[in-house]
Simulated scan of single mutants.
Amino acid sequence: MRWAHVPGVLGEIVRRRWEEVLPLVGSPLPEPPTVPSFGGALAEPGLSLIAEVKRKSPSQGDIAQLDPAQVARQYAEGGARAISVLTEPHYFAGSDQDLRKVRGAVNLPLLRKDFTVHPYQLAEARSLGASAALLIVAVLREETASFLEAAHQAGIEALVEVHDEAELEIALEAGATILGINNRDLTTLEINLETAPRLGRLARQRGYSGLLVAESGYGRKEEIVPLEGLFDAVLVGTSLARSGSWRQAVEVLMGRGIFS
């Protein structure tokens, strides 16, 4: 079985995704729109925020009933430099239509947050208006390099996500230029906020000069302060989406709000 090596809930998700994507492979896609650079936004001075449009997750359950365009506009007004949009429908209640709506609402670079199991999804993400797509090393393993090349061919940037030292080595060898370090173990769903700083320092020691993104578990300003100077960006989902006051939540998190 394809992706049989992936354990736990992550394995369930990617195998289901594979079954859904495979019949679509080869279907014509719309001409992709012009989009801003994801890496360019993250490379701006200071710590960039990637704010996530997120309704639910396997670890949190239902998070928020929200209109993706409205939330995205408020994220942008609050100072987010990029927006992540979940499009996986079963475990995260996302959709491709959510990404289209966000693309029509803001001019920021968008990350299609999904479970990439076929190169077709990269061209699909680009046609939907995404600037970048997610590649999870825990899923792709030794295929990470070939998926990175497929992303290049599709004209889309890739956020290559790792959680441990072995995955970091795969990502570095594959030539990742935007490296996401996830504090959440995707097989146990447990979070350890020490993971990102530890692996971020290790990546720099290995000579990595690309962009570093810290992911998962952040909800307060004091939690992201240790990332400054080491990371280029932080991706925040649950705490922002659940806030209900999305612009203010972004401003407070990034130290720009009246209550920060």
Rank of each mutant, 00 (worst) to 15 (best):
E88N: 06
V71Y: 11
E190H: 12
V225E: 12
P58I: 00
M1N: 15
A76E: 09
K54S: 06
P197S: 10
L108Q: 09
I170V: 15
L179T: 01
G11H: 10
E19R: 15
V35C: 07
L235M: 04
P197K: 10
I50T: 14
H5E: 14
Y208P: 00
A41I: 02
L212R: 12
A130P: 10
R247M: 06
P33T: 07
A132K: 08
Q248N: 02
V213S: 04
V53C: 14
G79P: 15
V252G: 00
P197I: 07
K113E: 06
P30R: 01
P119T: 13
A150D: 04
P58M: 00
I63Q: 05
G255C: 00
R184L: 01
P33S: 04
E173A: 15
L128C: 07
L235G: 00
A176E: 10
M1T: 14
V6N: 08
H152Q: 15
L253G: 13
Q97D: 13
E190G: 01
D67C: 08
Q205N: 09
L108A: 04
R256I: 03
D185Y: 10
R184G: 00
A196G: 12
F259S: 08
L111Y: 11
L172W: 05
H5P: 15
T187Q: 05
E190L: 06
D98T: 01
Y75Q: 08
E12I: 13
T144E: 11
G11R: 07
E12P: 00
P33M: 11
R204M: 06
A93S: 06
W3A: 06
E165G: 01
K54W: 07
L29M: 10
K113D: 12
R55G: 07
G8T: 11
L230H: 14
Q60R: 14
A125H: 09
P36C: 04
G78M: 11
T144H: 08
G94K: 03
G255V: 01
